[in-house]
Amino acid sequence: MDIFQVFNEDTLRDNLLFYYSGYMSHNVIGAMGDTLRYRLETQGTKGATTRKVFSTFIEMAQNILNYGGDEERNEDNRQYSRGAVAIGQQGGHFYIICGNHIDRAHLARVREKLEAIRAMSPEEIKQAYKQQLRTESSADEASKGAGLGFLTVARDASEPIEFCFIEYELPAENVGFYLKAVI
């Protein structure tokens, strides 16, 4: 109870709209998305900002669902992946952070993609987005690399996206991945 109280007070003080940690599923994402949008609309957030926050949330949450490390499927073959998402307000901006495990084998590729995006100007991000859309569409489902997803997040962000990798002791084949976007 003490841990919960500290956490609960911290989240209120830090202007956190919400925080979720646990198994992601399509239904959880849908319900959180609805709540998020309702919350933004009732506090009078501009339509374009609401769409950007919502879009970033969906890309990150579906990224966890599709590429999260601890994926499980139940008997009806639905996906459940473990991960965490936080949405809050800081200095007049909304931010969205997600965290999940990824396979260590993908670390270098993800780092390379995100470093490249971080170095781009907004105009370069738009051009890279158009280029990636043409590439991924013609390659069909072959490039399951979330390239367009990261660029979609970067396109809606007002400053360069941030990311880091967290080392865990176990399991050795996984590494923690955090991604943050400020709208």
């Binding site: 769409r51 919502f54 879009s55 969906i58 579906q62 859309l133 367009l148 997803g149 660029l151």
Partner: peptide
């Protein structure tokens, strides 16, 4: 369409 995610965009 008022919103479409990246995989729908493709």
């Amino acid at each position: 369409l008022t919103y479409f995610n990246s995989s729908s965009t493709k």
